[in-house]
Design a protein around this nucleic acid. Structure first.
Lengths: 97, 97
DNA sequence: GGTTCAATTAAGTATAGACTTAAATATCAT
DNA sequence: ATGATATTTAAGTCTATACTTAATTGAACC
């Protein structure tokens, strides 16, 4: 799947944002969304195949983290999307909760 | 349709490339592809709605041209994709024909 | 061993959207 | 006005893919 299609999916962008500057276990990522764990796992697979996330295994849990450099010129695209005021607001409310 | 989805579609990227540094009539653009004129027109509509192309009407023909600045951070993404050697090669062969 | 937990993979469904052909719109020419 | 040309829009089809639940893998623990 080509790089642009990978990040064109909103859910995958949200996942990327979650693991942007800290690693997180797959389960914790899945909990943030109201879709099944399997669905999130499939998205993680796509991100993994694209090289946009790295995985660290420890026991039975997999820790995911964004590979920011792998995104190349797409990185500023994502960062700009996340920098919009509305998006910031939603993010802050989420974190407060 | 959000900006990333718009350019995630390969056909639309090809169209953008065609009108990247010169305007072209819709018909001429459509001729380059082996899909119907209507299909290309629909893609042009999406690009128009996204603001990624401008249209100049003259009589019955519509001249399309990319609005490079409107692409913002996506511009370097496209330019990098088009800069790959394989892509360059295909482009050169096409132009030769 | 068996059981539980974390995650992935398999198999199937539902939907967005890229296509098709046909009809509509609009401009120019006769 | 009729017809030809350039393009868009309407209506419907078909396929990729984001989802679902169920089955599978693999590690930790008893």
């Amino acid at each position: 799947m080509d790089a642009l299609r990978v990040v064109a999916e909103p859910r995958r962008r949200e996942i990327l944002r979650l693991v942007w500057d800290q690693e997180r276990p797959a389960g914790e990522i899945a909990d943030r969304f109201d879709v099944s764990f399997a669905a999130v796992s499939q998205h993680l697979g796509v991100l993994r195949d694209a090289g946009f996330v790295n995985v660290r295994r420890d026991g039975r849990t997999r820790y995911y983290r964004a590979d920011r450099t792998a995104l190349g010129p797409l990185r500023p695209v994502l960062e700009k999307m996340w920098a919009t005021s509305l998006d910031r607001l939603v993010e802050l409310i989420e974190e407060e909760r």
